[in-house]
Design a protein around this nucleic acid. Structure first.
Lengths: 281, 281
DNA sequence: GGGGTCGATACCGCGGCGGTATGGGGCCAG
DNA sequence: CTGGCCCCATACCGCCGCGGTATCGACCCC
């Protein structure tokens, strides 16, 4: 199976519509129809059922969509990581990704410590919205990630724990609850008049809801200060807080473990060095 | 990047020789040379250095080999799993793999319990030599595996622990050490006159050494009985032992955890059901 | 029943893949 | 030093197959 076929198939599956998929792929509809038919013939099974309004996946098609997406991500990762080491003249740089604004103190310590290593390579840091780190590791846009258990999906990666902390609710200063000694998770997730913020999904769109649309932590803290939202965060954010914010511990929230994660087959010296450094912190 | 290019590249990298790689791929040498040159041009970097005796990987090439192998395995997995659900008429069967001979009692219980589930699908069991399970999960020959921590490489998979046990040394009955109350790992790994057995590597070849070449547990137990080898195993093998064998506990060996493992993106109902059943055992 | 919206089919042109033949550099034996 | 050998690269060619346009056929809805 060629990646071209997989790309075509995934496009059609995602659009549920051959014509739109062809447009997205920058080609005409007939060759795409034929490519899909040919793939079905080679696999010996229908991938789509044709309906008057477009196409729908069969259960075989669903399997191929799931597996094919993972395969395409792996191929993209191979190409991206190869290009990156090529651009660096063979000395593969390391791309580290983390949630925008989170764990800044820890990351600074980690990057400083690693830079002091004798065989350190260049580290590029990419801050992206929560939830995007795993996808970036999978498709090669990043080589290492700072993630937070149990919030992030660690499956499929090797990880080392960095540290453990409690969670707190961030409120506007002066909010009636800001003087409470502690809150429960149930209370914290439904603060009266302060809807939780919404974060972008992997495709950049936002889920429905009353809360504000946000991309990083400084934005959200500003909106908390303005009394527009409230949210639960690891307590280490205290270090980044300015005036105008109140912090209330949560009594029954699970502890958050910050971990460093990397793809299991990665054997690059940069990743290994960074992980080794992290383990010593 | 197309999978055809990746296959070509991996073949050349593995053979370190364009001509032999072409032969292995069933094609002539010139088109392969050209395909590699084209790939290098598109990536903008040399993947091989040409030597008088063949070719060697550059550091960029090493990156592509590592990542490309993973990508090819993912593509193969997509195709294999799709074909499998196609052959089963859409009701994806589950392929479970385990070390030949190991954990037979546990597996019997698991398969029985799962078969009693209302929505159970067909489970095919593939027993293969130790160390092959991870590769089978990765390239789609299997969907679930029974593995043993810390011996097997669990990285890249989701796992659930099934149970924990001690390790024992299996000796021929009547061996001088067979009456010892316990042994250390250091002693057990160098039993006088009884070299440890050798297991096949992923490519089917055997490492060098004095021990016998083996593929499964019944074979090895027979050879122990004949006084040709001795080896360390989890103590649950006691259930499978017949006469002629002695068992000595190891005092300082790490405990073995039997786990059920599956690829993180697998969402098939079969895998989910099997894992759920396993968790209840 | 007609127009609109789909995907499938028919047919064509061309890029690119793989084939054979050959070139050219490096190494070694004589 | 040189002929022969072992490699990989280049040159050239034929054909498969991909993608394009035009059109058909099925289905739905007004």
């Amino acid at each position: 199976m060629e990646t071209r076929e997989l790309r075509y198939f995934v496009a059609v599956a995602e659009e549920s519509h051959v014509g739109r998929a062809a447009e997205r792929l920058g080609m005409a509809q007939p060759p795409l129809s034929r490519a899909i038919a040919q793939l079905e013939r080679r696999l010996g099974a229908d991938l789509f059922v044709r309906t008057p309004r477009g196409v729908t996946l069969t259960s075989v098609g669903e399997t191929l969509l799931r597996e094919g997406r993972a395969a395409l991500a792996a191929v993209e990762a191979a190409e991206r990581r190869t290009r990156r080491t090529a651009e660096a003249g063979g000395r593969a740089p390391v791309v580290l990704t983390a949630k925008a604004g989170a764990s800044s103190e820890l990351m600074a310590k980690l990057l400083d410590a690693y830079a002091a290593e004798p065989d350190a390579v260049e580290v590029e840091v990419i801050l992206s919205p929560p939830g995007h780190q795993a996808a970036m590791l999978r498709d090669g846009r990043a080589d290492v990630a700072i993630l937070h258990h149990p919030f992030d999906d660690l499956s499929g990666f090797d990880t080392d724990p960095l540290f453990v902390e409690e969670q707190v609710l961030i409120l506007p200063a002066g909010h009636p609850w800001s003087t409470r000694p502690s809150l429960t998770v149930a209370e914290a997730t439904s603060v009266p008049d302060l809807p939780p913020p919404r974060w972008p999904a992997l495709d950049g769109s936002y889920p429905d809801g009353p809360g504000p649309e946000l991309r990083d932590l400084t934005q959200v803290l500003q909106l908390v200060r303005l009394g527009r939202t409230a949210l639960v965060l690891p307590e280490s954010v205290r270090a980044d807080l300015r005036d105008g914010l109140a912090v209330v511990p949560l009594s029954d929230a699970p502890r958050v473990t910050t971990v460093i994660a990397w793809p299991p087959h990665s054997t690059s010296t940069g990743v290994a060095g960074l992980v080794r450094t992290a383990a010593r912190l």
